[in-house]
Amino acid sequence: MSDWQQICRVDDLERERGVTALVHGQAVAIFRTHDDQVYALGNYDPFAHASVLARGIIGTRGDVPFVASPMHKQAFDLRTGVCLDDDSVSVPAYDVKVVDGTILVGPRKASTLA
């Protein structure tokens, strides 16, 4: 199904580090966490107005996995794209699945639409 775009092999990703992928012409940040979950968020940091989120540090706040923008350190929930420091701001989050070791990025998660 064409809504799902093939990106790369899970093994190509380092744990707890992001990469940027080009998905339907847009910059999308893909993250693999320590427990091998894969998440995808829009790469554009709405605070800094720059395409950088994939280059942030990942970690946890309580149980929430997040990425901290490398620009000014705002944290975004990897699952929903909601900013943990200001919940009125969010970045798009995308569905992700792993098929036979290959990462596929799908549609934008509806729950993240304002």
Partner: peptide, 19 residues
Amino acid sequence: QLSSEPVTLGSHIPVGAPT
């Protein structure tokens, strides 16, 4: 040069069904 929106090179990514 900064832009206030992400710049795209292609179409839009579809939005999934509400969960």
